[in-house]
Computed example of a mutant assay.
Amino acid sequence: MPQIELRNLHKGFKTGEVLKGLSLSADEGEIVVVFGPSGTGKTVLLRLIAGVEDPDAGSISLMGRDVTDAAPETRGVGMAFQNFALFPHMSAYDNIASALTAHEKSAATIKAKVDRVGALLKIGHVMQHAPRELSNGQKQRTALARALVSDPRILLLDDPLRNVDAKLRYEMRLELPSLLKTAGSTVLYVTQDYKEAMALGDRIAVLLDGGFAQVATPAEVYLEPATLGVARLFGDPTVNVVPATPVLQEAEPVFEIGGRPLRLPAHYAHIAGRTCMIGIRPESLVVEETASPESFPVEVVAITPLNEKSVLLLRTTDGRELLAAEAGNEEATRRHGPAHARFDPNAVLVFDAASGRRIPPHLN
């Protein structure tokens, strides 16, 4: 039975409708990351589940119980906010314990639970510090500890790593999945960082235009994006997009880049004559000095070294700009100027130009 079940949720404000018939379910112990750009309604969704806001229509069920009209304190939900929301006059210990004191737990129970979650999050040494004495990383862990301490069956995390430094953000991406699995809660985790979504989620729910454009595993979202909009959100640099109307030659669809005909696999034969957008991930583009039957001429316009990889800005003979990503720092060996590029035809993504939806291959 799903621990969280949202059915046809609608929510609007004076500026317009934010959520438009949104539905989602999450199973016990599952981490579902709600991902999308700023302003798409991710925080609004969490506030609806927590009971802070009321939906205009639709229903919310938690642990098999309809809580659409239930008071927030009866929902059994833990929540951590992106701005920490710590009580400034309380120590870290008292901030964490406040979730238990509200339920009139005994002092011994409170101490045991606070000490346990403090050790788990490695903040035991700052328990008597006031929030103003804590680093952003310690504040973040304190807010998370407060959400975890009462062992909530359902945990809502509103972009909790947004206000911490890059080093801690990276460390917490590694630690959080096992930490959340240890807690055993069913988690909805909001973020607008695609790397965070890929690292933390059992599934990712991509929120766009008031609804979920795709709900799938991280691998599926990246390799089989439901729409061009989803494909553009995942990847750095973003996916290259080439408009095309392929024609069939010897049972294979052919399209052009820079006047050069390039073949796609036969399992894309059904796209012949259809106006498409061909998506090529930058890491799928290989830039070489010499031409090959599968390559097309380009000019290397700029090279940006990013330590673990280099990003190349390429320009085709018809003026189209493409991005390629190469492993390692190629600045010393890679030269600007004429070159040739090729890609793995089996790695392309094909989208319908009118709807933006991905056109899957016909595999036997």
Rank of each mutant, 00 (worst) to 15 (best):
Q3I: 02
I4Y: 11
N8D: 15
L9E: 13
L9K: 14
L9V: 08
K11I: 13
G12L: 14
F13D: 12
K14C: 06
K14T: 15
S23K: 07
S23C: 14
A26W: 12
A26N: 11
D27K: 15
E28R: 15
G29I: 11
E30I: 08
F35L: 15
K42I: 03
K42H: 08
V44I: 13
L46Y: 05
A50I: 08
D56V: 08
S61K: 15
L62D: 07
V67T: 14
A71E: 15
P72D: 08
P72W: 08
G76R: 13
G76F: 11
Q82I: 03
A85N: 12
F87A: 08
F87G: 02
F87I: 02
T101C: 03
T101A: 08
T101N: 13
H103I: 11
E104Y: 10
I110G: 06
I110S: 05
K111L: 06
K113Q: 15
R116P: 00
L121Q: 11
V126R: 06
M127H: 01
R132H: 10
L134W: 07
S135G: 01
N136M: 02
L148H: 02
L155T: 04
L155K: 11
L155E: 10
L157S: 11
D158E: 05
D158F: 00
D159R: 01
P160Q: 11
L161N: 03
L161R: 02
V164P: 07
M172S: 08
M172D: 05
L174F: 01
P177W: 00
S178Y: 07
K181S: 04
T182N: 09
A183W: 01
G184K: 06
L188M: 00
K195P: 00
M198W: 01
G201S: 09
D202E: 04
R203S: 02
V206G: 03
L207T: 04
L208I: 10
G211L: 01
G211R: 10
A213K: 04
A213V: 05
Q214T: 05
V215M: 06
L228G: 01
L228F: 00
V230L: 07
R232S: 08
G235Q: 07
P237A: 03
N240A: 03
P243F: 07
A244K: 00
L248K: 05
Q249P: 00
F255N: 01
E256L: 09
E256P: 01
R263P: 02
L264N: 06
Y268E: 11
C276R: 04
S284I: 01
V286W: 00
E288V: 11
E289R: 15
E289D: 14
T290R: 13
E294N: 11
E299N: 12
I303E: 13
T304E: 15
K309H: 14
L313A: 13
L313C: 09
T316A: 15
L322E: 05
L323N: 12
A325Q: 15
A327K: 12
A327R: 13
N329W: 07
N329T: 06
A332E: 12
R335M: 14
H336K: 15
G337R: 12
G337W: 07
A341L: 10
A341T: 14
F343S: 12
A347I: 07
F351R: 12
S355D: 07
R358A: 14
P361I: 04
H362W: 04
L363A: 12
L363W: 00
N364V: 06
